[in-house]
Amino acid sequence: MGAASLIVLIIAAIAFSGIAILISKFVLKPTTNKQKGEPYECGIPTQGKTWIQLNVGYYLFALIFLIFDVELVFLYPWAVVAKSAGWIALIEIVIFFFILFMGFLYAHKKGALKWM
């Protein structure tokens, strides 16, 4: 069916979720009370702000990931032709991995991979 299928899928997803939510909206009468809308924190009112700056630990992995994922994208076209390119491909990838691994080791040594 080709690329048109993507449109079908997106519409299907929206329709499915939309209809499901709408049905549940129609089926019941919402009730309200004071506590209902409070964020759940084991039944205790939450203290302090929730939307705060978070520890850098989480983001560091995103950064490292970014670097590695870009390398991974390079690998896809290489992988397709690797078999036909033969030894050149292997040598190339060894060099590529060597550099990548050095970067990895550097990150490891710097403690970027240790959770803080």
Binding site: E41, C42, P45, Q47, G48, I52, Q53
Partner: peptide
């Protein structure tokens, strides 16, 4: 647990207070 004097002020940025329990 409605108010805890020692926790009225929140410490450093990036720190937050979480209640674990009584329904956990």
């Amino acid at each position: 647990g409605s108010s805890h004097p020692s926790f009225a002020e929140v410490g450093q940025p990036g720190e937050f207070i979480i209640n674990v329990g009584p329904q956990h």
